[in-house]
Design a protein around this nucleic acid. Structure first.
Length: 258
DNA sequence: ATGTCCTCTCTTAGAGGA
C-alpha cells in the first residue's frame, strides 16, 4: 500500500499536475496540503473521475487539507485538532483507510520569526504533539503525513547556514520536531535513507530546482505498529520539474498489507 | 534585498502569503 503526501500549492491551479501524477503513480492514499480553495471549490468531480474518494477541509485563499483514497472513501475521524476548536485555519484532517489511521497536516510556516506567526506555529505544534501522543497510546498503525514546515537537521537544507534565522529551522522548531519524534515515532524517509540528501521542496526563486537547492520539510511519522510494515519510501522529484507545478514534490511510502 | 507564483479583490494591478 502506497501512501503519499503532496503540498499542491493550490488544488485548482495545479489540478492538471495533480491528475497527471495520480494517473502516473496511482498512490492508494494521498494527503494534500495548501488547497487554497474554499470548501465548495474543491475539485471533487475531477478527483472522483480519477478514481479517488476524498474528504477535505477547505478555507478561502489559504491552507486547506484533504485525504484521498483510491477506489475507496476515507472514513473521517476528525477535522481540526482536539482542543483547538477556535482555530480558524484548516490544517488538520484525519481518517481511517484500510485500518490505518491517516493524519494529514499542514503545520504553520511561522515566518517572520520571532513574532505572532511564529508563536502560532509553536502553539499549533504543541497542540499537535499532544494529539500525536494520544494517538500513540491507542496502539494502532498510524501515519502523520504532511508539510511540517520544519527542516529537522542540517542535512535537510541545501545551505543550512542561510536558514538559521528562519522559522523552518530555528532551534525552537527543530526542538519541537525532535521532541515529537521522541514520543516514539519513526521519520520514515530518514530511517530508510539515513545518510542521503533528500529534498521535498524547492523554492520558485533563483532556479532552486535546477540547482537542487532544496529543503526536506514534508515528513511521514509512523507509529511502531506501522513502522514495522515500512518497505520503501521516496520523492517523486521529477514532478517538481513539470509546467505549472507546486514548489513541493510528492513524497511517498510503501507499507506491507496486513 | 532579491527572486516566483498562488489567490483574492475596493479586479485586469496590487496585496498578502509562502
Amino acid at each position: 500500500m502506497k501512501i503519499a503526501t503532496y503540498n499542491v500549492n493550490g488544488v485548482n491551479g495545479r489540478l492538471p499536475v495533480l491528475l497527471r501524477w495520480l494517473a502516473e503513480t496511482a498512490p492508494d492514499v494521498v494527503c494534500l496540503q495548501e488547497l487554497k480553495a474554499p470548501q465548495e471549490k474543491f475539485p471533487e468531480e475531477a478527483i472522483k473521475d480519477a478514481g479517488y474518494g476524498a474528504i477535505w477541509q477547505g478555507q478561502k485563499s489559504w491552507n486547506g487539507v484533504a485525504i484521498l483514497a483510491r477506489n475507496a472513501q476515507p472514513k473521517e475521524i476528525r477535522r481540526g485538532l482536539p482542543g483547538n476548536a477556535d482555530d480558524e485555519q484548516s490544517r488538520y484532517i484525519e481518517a481511517v483507510v484500510n485500518d490505518i489511521v491517516i493524519g494529514c497536516l499542514y503545520l504553520p510556516n511561522g515566518n517572520p520569526a520571532p513574532g505572532p506567526k511564529f508563536d502560532y506555529k509553536l502553539q499549533w505544534f504543541e497542540q499537535f504533539a499532544k494529539h500525536a501522543k494520544q494517538l500513540l497510546k491507542e496502539g494502532l498503525p498510524v501515519v502523520l503525513a504532511g508539510d511540517y514546515n520544519v527542516i529537522p537537521t542540517e542535512m535537510d537544507a541545501y545551505k543550512p547556514e542561510r536558514w538559521v534565522e528562519d522559522a523552518l529551522f530555528r532551534p525552537e522548531s527543530r526542538a519541537a520536531f525532535k521532541k515529537l519524534v521522541a514520543q516514539g515515532w519513526t521519520d520514515a524517509i530518514r530511517k530508510l535513507y539515513p545518510n542521503e540528501t533528500i529534498y521535498t521542496f524547492w523554492d520558485y526563486f533563483r532556479n532552486a530546482y535546477g540547482r537542487n537547492a532544496g529543503l526536506r520539510i514534508d515528513h511521514f511519522l509512523l507509529s511502531p505498529q506501522l513502522d514495522k510494515r515500512l518497505v520503501a519510501a521516496g520523492v517523486d522529484h521529477h514532478v517538481r520539474g513539470w509546467e505549472k507545478t507546486s514548489d513541493h514534490g510528492p513524497v511517498w511510502i510503501e507499507v506491507r498489507d496486513e
